[in-house]
Amino acid sequence: MFLLENQVPCEVLRVLINFRSDVGNEGEETMHSFVDFIVHRQRTSEPEGGKLRTSIYQRRPSHLLEMYRTSFLRFDFNQKHSPEAKFLVDGKNQYTNYTHSCRSATELKAKGINFRPSTGKSLTDIDFNSLGFYGQLKIPSRVITPSAKAIFLNLIAYEMCPYTPNDFSVTSYIAFMKSLINHPDDVKVLRSNHILLSKLNSDEELAKMYMEISIPTVNNAIFMNVQERIQEHYNSRAKTWIAQMISRYLSSPWAAIALLAATLLLVLTFLQTYFTISPRSGK
């Protein structure tokens, strides 16, 4: 139903659904309820659902795939993420590939960067904060089902089409997540921190899914600031060395006790050597 080539205009679907009932807006409610359940695994009921939809859909979606994309992103195309605000930086078009590298999840974790679920309502509410020796990367939680790859590919194809809200938000989000996942261990890090809620059989299967998705182009401006801050924290040797030391030697009580015992033994050995070489005179 979400294949790009199979899309039927929403107006046709509304008419077909309304044939079975005297309620004039049943078609609209049925489609929204269906898409909300598919995207977020929960149904939005009136009146809360109606208010939420009013804030999300600033214009009527043309078909189910566009409705899916809008619900998936949870933002207003015409204001917060308008093409003029996102694509033009110093008057230049930013339809280019990422210029800032983003390390894998395990590599970032090794440098003292922790992952936390974002509380934002938009899919693009990804934020990074450098907190002393540690960093915190907040990413919205997302349920990954067996059909996720097919839907992602069709959303990417839809954003490449002309006359669409082609701000590449979904494509850029998938590219960002793809940059974090190079190995099943990366999936494990994101899954253990409730970023990815996987319905697949294994971490290997989820990692393979992301690696098989090809990203033709992205909106460079959406995550540029986040990636620059990640890279700045990553390049700080003092921060990363101290974070690595704390993670390695103070991650558990036993590791801390072992470090304390080794330090005490080293100090005693030093004192013994010193007094052997320079014994105290008199009393």
Rank of each mutant, 00 (worst) to 15 (best):
N93V: 01
G135W: 12
L131N: 14
D127T: 09
G132D: 06
T106Y: 08
A105K: 08
D90V: 03
K121Y: 02
Y95D: 09
N129T: 12
E107G: 01
N129R: 15
I113K: 12
Y134V: 02
S122A: 13
C102P: 02
T99V: 06
G91T: 09
S118M: 10
V89F: 12
Q94I: 04
N97M: 11
T96Q: 13
E107K: 15
R103K: 09
I113S: 05
H100M: 08
R116V: 04
S122P: 01
G135C: 07
G132H: 11
D90R: 14
T119A: 08
Y134A: 08
E107I: 00
S122T: 08
G135Q: 06
N97F: 11
I113D: 07
T124G: 03
I126H: 13
N97A: 04
K109L: 12
A105H: 05
Y98G: 00
G91Y: 11
Y95T: 05
L131F: 05
S101L: 03
I126Y: 02
K111A: 01
L108P: 07
K121A: 03
G120V: 06
P117S: 03
F133Y: 14
L137W: 08
R116A: 04
S122F: 03
N114M: 08
I126K: 13
K111D: 11
T99K: 15
L108Q: 03
N97W: 12
P117V: 02
D125P: 06
S130T: 15
N114S: 11
L88R: 10
L131P: 02
H100C: 02
G120Y: 07
C102I: 13
K111Q: 14
L131H: 11
L88P: 01
T106D: 01
Y98V: 07
C102Y: 01
Q136S: 13
T124K: 06
N129Y: 04
K109R: 12
S122L: 00
K92C: 04
H100W: 00
